[in-house]
Nucleic acid binder design. Sequence first.
DNA 1: GATCCCCTGAGC
DNA 2: GCTCAGGGGATC
Length: 312
Amino acid sequence: MPELPEVETVRRGLEPALVGARFSRVTLRRPNLRFAFPERFAERLEGRRVRELARRAKYLTAHLDSGETLVMHLGMSGRFDVALPDGRNLSPGDFYLEGALGTPKHDHVVMAMETGATITYNDVRRFGFMDLVPTDGLAASRHFAGMGIEPLSEALTGEAVARLFRHRITPLKSALLDQRLIAGLGNIYVCEALHRAGLHPEAPAGSLATGSGRPTPKARLLARVIRDVLTEAVAAGGSTLRDYAHTDGSAGAFQHAFRVYDRVGEPCSAPGCRGVIGRMVQAGRSTFYCAACQPAPARGVGTRRAALGAAT
DNA sequence: GATCCCCTGAGC
DNA sequence: GCTCAGGGGATC
């Protein structure tokens, strides 16, 4: 379930236990997660040292001294637990929440480090995965080839939004979730960003570019609020709804700052707005929005004319 | 675009 | 029983 802020929070939690440390023993409790583990996965990790732990979009990449990179994706329910040798972060009472979520039943990978730290990967739904790819071919690998711009980088500007969305009649919600355009946004932060920008989720993406391909004021605003909401969420340690937890088992806090996500029926919090948060389904997934301050696009939405047209 | 898929569990 | 869930990919 983690989106970019949750993955970044996990990265920061893993960093002290992983970077500079060497794998001593890697145990797989099953042959696959979403995909099969690569050949000789454990042997290729054992004895190797981690030089750097980075994040790209919702992926974590651990660069090894073997010239390979461990690529990790948390899917919908993946989480890491870090137990340091001195007992810090060892909080099974927090990590193993009540019920089956987060129980040892779903501990699929256990990484024992030479430092004595133990890193456990737990994933109820098993939509996550791990892979090993040559570091010098990382950008061209199947995971990263064709991936869109990093939303927390300088690359995300109004100009970039206009360039990427120009001529697209796909709804803004879908365009923002398309990892080939901007990589790292998920359902929560797309809903939150569209609300902050006052943009209707069904407005055609192309309406953020002028006829000559320049960004509209809304394109610049959208780029800014995406950066804002992600930055605030990272600072809050991400959002905890169900499965997601920090590497010490504690929860994120940004869910308390949601303005629309999972708030159907509640009054809109935008200053002066008297709207009520509603829900619709787009591409099979819930969209939360305020019809009052995210006004529906003009008639003709979805037509080529509307997409190319004169978006305000 | 929408729809169904992977998988397990929670909530109704 | 049914629907829904921070992801992503395949298939019309």
